[in-house]
Design a protein around this nucleic acid. Structure first.
Length: 615
DNA sequence: TGATGGCCTA
């Protein structure tokens, strides 16, 4: 099935130039694939054609039943009951009625249920149309089965239907969500090249979103600017997608520019547009601009939703302004917007950051009482709160409680506990936890876990154990990043193994890694500590050549190295350079200078430094 | 009748 999908996307030499026959060629390859690859889970089983029912008059009861499916169901059971009754109706409800029922199930996110209803419809020979297929394609995409979605594309053609722009939009979206943006783009290009469909604004929005998720705002903006030429006018979603992308790439002012551009073009921003911008501005603590946008929303009569309030609460919490966050909760409830699990998680995190884990626990309990189920985040936040307080046993209790609530700890949960053990000085338990609960259970780890583990071990002087753990992690597929190696180099040099640190450093390019400011600073510090000032200086000059500017930590480190090694003149030169770059002398450098003066105040060079830099 | 965008975790 994957092969068939790849074929549709990439093998363009088989795609003819007329739209109709192009679709048919899709059908041919898809169908031939089915016949050779029977799959019991395959939703598509070729069926004979059925005429659509011709809108027969329904009884009152039937109308009521069908009306219900058009709105939405509180419970899945209601939908299933209606479906059962629909199957029994004579004459059968129309294909539209069935489609709307499926849509209602999809709206409740019960994708696999929708799939089984669809199978039942096929078994019962209920007529379907291209919209039914599109709905199912969407379900498979949400179930991460793009391969099945593509097999339904073949099913559409086999039934003599023509895939619509919605079909392809859904498939493109599915590819993107399956982390196949490249394939999505190829499909998009082939659709245009062979004129299979005329892309509409949703097609562009989907592709732009995909490019944004690949982290390429400038490419996305380029495509956006090209839309108009292709006869496709950007809409609110286009602008919102781009604005969000720009905000996430810290280009908030450019995003604000787009907000103004869209209003000039009479495309009205909605609450989502504003939420993205407010989040972007909060990230930069631009409170004044946030207030401005909130006012603008009022003027435009766009009311704040639970996202808006949650963004504000989260921002207040991160700034330690818990009282203000509490006020926002109050305000939103007054306005009839109710906090959800995310809102409460943000508040809990805020309390934990303040060391008020008991208040976080109170929030946790109160949300349960309100019928809002805590999720994995809630647990992880609370576990983190306890770990910060060094109450690791409480954290472990919560961790063990998770499965009974139907929750699976994530790698973040594990990492938090690991960090908690080290923070509490319980490195033996940390190692046991890592071995027994993570390695032996096959938990997938990432670079952050690796950093926590290696940092914890190195700090406790288990440098070589750290190295062997790294080997285990690498054998399990982890590709260590530069931060991991920096931690190791720091650990090695601080435990008297400068040579090992140096060889790790020298091997970085072979691993395709570039040292960053911290890496250089760690090595410079190591050289200074061993009195190897020449090496330290050489590395310091090498940094700039490698487009890696020293920061205030690097300068202070090297200056302290010079002072400790009685290179007062060199220290003076570096101090000049550092101050010239707008960095300040840090406290430990200042106090070192002071201490040195205490011991040997007669030294003229030292005295000159003192007078010049610390008046 | 169907398809697209936004918030929270170490």
């Amino acid at each position: 099935m994957m092969m068939m999908m790849k074929f549709v996307i990439s093998n363009s030499r088989f795609l003819p130039h007329s739209a109709a026959s192009a679709h048919t060629s899709f059908c041919f390859y898809a169908a031939s694939h089915f016949s050779t690859n029977p799959n019991p889970n395959n939703p598509f089983k070729p069926k004979p054609h059925f005429p659509c029912s011709s809108n027969p008059p329904h009884t009152r009861l039937q109308h009521l039943l069908l009306e219900k499916s058009k709105v939405s169901f509180d419970k899945l059971d209601d939908a299933l009951q209606v479906f059962g009754k629909m199957l029994l109706m004579k004459p059968l409800p129309t294909v539209i009625d069935f489609n709307q029922l499926l849509a209602a199930v999809v709206k409740m996110k019960h994708y696999s249920v929708a799939v089984s209803l669809f199978r039942k419809m096929r078994v019962e020979s209920i007529p379907v149309n291209v919209i039914t297929f599109n709905t199912l394609i969407n379900c498979f995409c949400h179930l991460n089965r793009v391969d099945f979605a593509f097999s339904l594309l073949a099913g559409i053609i086999k039934h003599g239907f023509v895939p619509s722009v919605v079909t392809y939009n859904t498939l493109i979206r599915g590819l993107i969500s399956q982390d196949m943006p490249h394939e999505a783009q190829l499909l998009f290009q082939n659709l245009i090249r062979f004129q299979l469909i005329q892309p509409n604004v949703v097609t562009y929005n989907t592709i732009i979103d995909g490019i944004c998720k690949r982290g390429n705002p400038s490419v996305a903006v380029k495509l956006f600017k090209n839309m108009d030429n292709k006869g496709c006018k950007p809409d609110t979603v286009t602008y919102s997608t781009l604005i969000d992308c720009l905000c996430k790439h810290r280009l908030v002012d450019q995003a604000l520019g787009l907000l103004h551009q869209m209003t000039r073009k009479a495309i009205s921003p909605d609450v989502i547009t504003y939420n993205s911008l407010i989040q972007g501005l909060c990230d930069f603590n631009r409170w004044h601009d946030v207030k401005q946008l909130l006012k603008e929303m009022d003027v435009r009569n766009i009311s704040r939703d639970v996202y808006t309030f949650t963004i504000l609460i989260d921002a207040y919490c991160k700034e330690g302004m818990i009282i203000d966050a509490e006020d926002v909760i109050e305000l939103m409830i007054q306005r009839g917007v109710y906090p959800n699990v995310v809102t409460y998680n943000s508040l809990m995190d805020g309390y934990c950051l303040q060391g008020e884990v008991n208040k976080a626990l109170a929030v946790f309990e109160s949300m349960k009482r309100k019928g809002i189920l805590p999720n994995t985040f809630s647990y992880t936040i609370l576990i983190n709160g306890y770990c910060r307080k060094k109450k690791v046993d409480r954290a472990i209790d919560l961790f063990q409680q998770m499965p009974s609530e139907g929750l699976t700890p994530t790698i973040e949960t594990y990492s938090t506990i690991l960090q908690g053990f080290f923070h509490a000085g319980r490195h033996v338990e940390a190692r046991n936890f890592f071995k027994e609960k993570m390695i032996n259970q096959g938990v997938e780890f990432n670079n952050v876990t690796c950093r926590i583990l290696l940092h914890g071990l190195c700090q406790n002087s288990y440098v070589f154990e750290a190295l062997s753990f790294l080997q285990i992690l690498e054998s399990r597929g982890l590709v260590p990043d530069i931060h991991v190696y920096t931690i190791l180099m720091d650990g090695l040099s601080k435990n008297g193994h400068l040579e090992n640190a140096r060889s790790l450093f020298d091997n970085l390019p072979a691993k395709g890694l570039r040292p960053n400011v911290k890496t250089y600073t760690v090595m410079i510090q190591a050289y200074c500590h061993e009195g190897l000032l020449d090496e330290a200086n050489e590395l310091f000059r090498e940094m700039e050549g490698n487009d890696c500017l020293p920061d205030h930590v690097t300068y202070n480190m090297l200056i302290r190295g010079c002072l400790q090694n009685k290179k007062y003149y060199e220290a003076g030169v570096l101090l000049d350079e550092m101050l010239g770059r707008g960095f300040a002398t840090d406290a430990s450098t200042a106090s070192l200078l002071l201490d040195l003066l205490d011991v040997q105040e007669q030294h003229p060079a030292l005295l000159a430094l003192w007078k010049k830099y610390l008046p």
